[in-house]
Design a protein around this nucleic acid. Sequence first.
DNA 1: CGATTTGTTGACTAATATCAAACTGTGTGG
DNA 2: CCACACAGTTTGATATTAGTCAACAAATCG
Lengths: 236, 236
Amino acid sequence: MPGEMMIRRLRVNSKLSEDDVSALRSLRVQVKEFPEETVVVREGERATHCGVILSGFAYRAKVAENGKRQILSFHPAGDMPDLQGLFLDRMDHDLVTLSRARIGFIEHRSIHQLIEAQPSIAQALWRETLVDAAVFREWIVSLGTRTAAGRMAHLIAELRQRLTAMGLAADDEFEFPITQSRLAEALGLSAVHVNRVLQSFRAEGVLDIQKNMVKLSDIAKLVEIGGFSDTYLHQQ
Amino acid sequence: MPGEMMIRRLRVNSKLSEDDVSALRSLRVQVKEFPEETVVVREGERATHCGVILSGFAYRAKVAENGKRQILSFHPAGDMPDLQGLFLDRMDHDLVTLSRARIGFIEHRSIHQLIEAQPSIAQALWRETLVDAAVFREWIVSLGTRTAAGRMAHLIAELRQRLTAMGLAADDEFEFPITQSRLAEALGLSAVHVNRVLQSFRAEGVLDIQKNMVKLSDIAKLVEIGGFSDTYLHQQ
DNA sequence: CGATTTGTTGACTAATATCAAACTGTGTGG
DNA sequence: CCACACAGTTTGATATTAGTCAACAAATCG
């Protein structure tokens, strides 16, 4: 039931009627499995499908002219990271798997039909893209105003919040198969500096990342260091 | 005719039919004038209207927990900077005038009616919010990977491109009433450093900012320093 | 015209990057 | 099972970028 993940996810930000749910269930979803660190859709391509992450993690990234890569967002199960493709004809960034991941693909054509027939679903999807943009805004605030430790803490706190909403995080830990150099690409830091920040978090009992798991020792401290407040996520 | 500005703007990214245009013309727009540096909508508020910048400039900004303010985007005439308010109930950032500005306000209710009756307009507005997000993504790349000079150059090159699309820029100059400390807030730099970057641009014949005008001396160099490519703007 | 904001300069400091090397863990083929 | 390769992490030394502070100059405004 690949549609279920999508329904669960849309319910985080929108109310869905019975009709909406059954319409979503009727979507044809083509499931593919990808190994870790595999490009799913590449910048410049014309996308014909929308992807739903069914298991594992993906991220979006863009390569700057100087060769540095910037990670734009992380996507756990439930996320639909390329909804923008419904109305923008070319990808302006890559979609890449972080871990091994199953991704469900839905044809643009069927989504277009669906949202024409069912405006409430159009609204839910539109809202998804708006929340996506709100997360980008907060990411800009992080990069522009926060210290290295603040950015790191904010990222982890945000992930925890989003995973919790999907029932994918325990109280004090969650799965997140990330390397330090990818964290560096996300936070606009060097891998060496990321390493040092993580060491300081370990030493001060904030968190630890070991073997694909983020272990949180002091969530209050994490939230404070990152200046995290969940309002920008617009969860109901 | 306050609707005309909006129509001109939507045509940058979308095709509009005759019906679309006349429907847009029939929207009731309430025009208000604001002095410079005035908060139009504040973070946390529940917006009831969408704004269209009719003249002047506005920007969106967010204050981080540490008191630093991050400017998220600049908005020249034509832009509708708070479209997200149609589906997100509270503002997650401020909308502020940069210069004296006239802003047209349209009730959410009438836009909701319009997009229900005319799906092609819904698509055009949705696409606007998606391009807005694409610009945020590029802003993230700037903050995460580019040097101070690169960020500055990229911002100016982007603005030039967007203003040109609206017919608001001459070949080698455009109006942009910005102070160095606001540039600093946008680029995640200190005002002193912005000053030094601008001096180097002047010295090397790239550009000069004087009296509300950006004067471009060498656009090719500007584009190169900023690593600017316009594809992410998704203009047709 | 004084008052205030904006821009400029120099000296010094802090944050983070870079480079290079060593260390750790994990999986693979012999 | 071992040896090796490889990717990821850790460490130390040094370099660079940008921030801070403080003073002053220039422009703008009422």
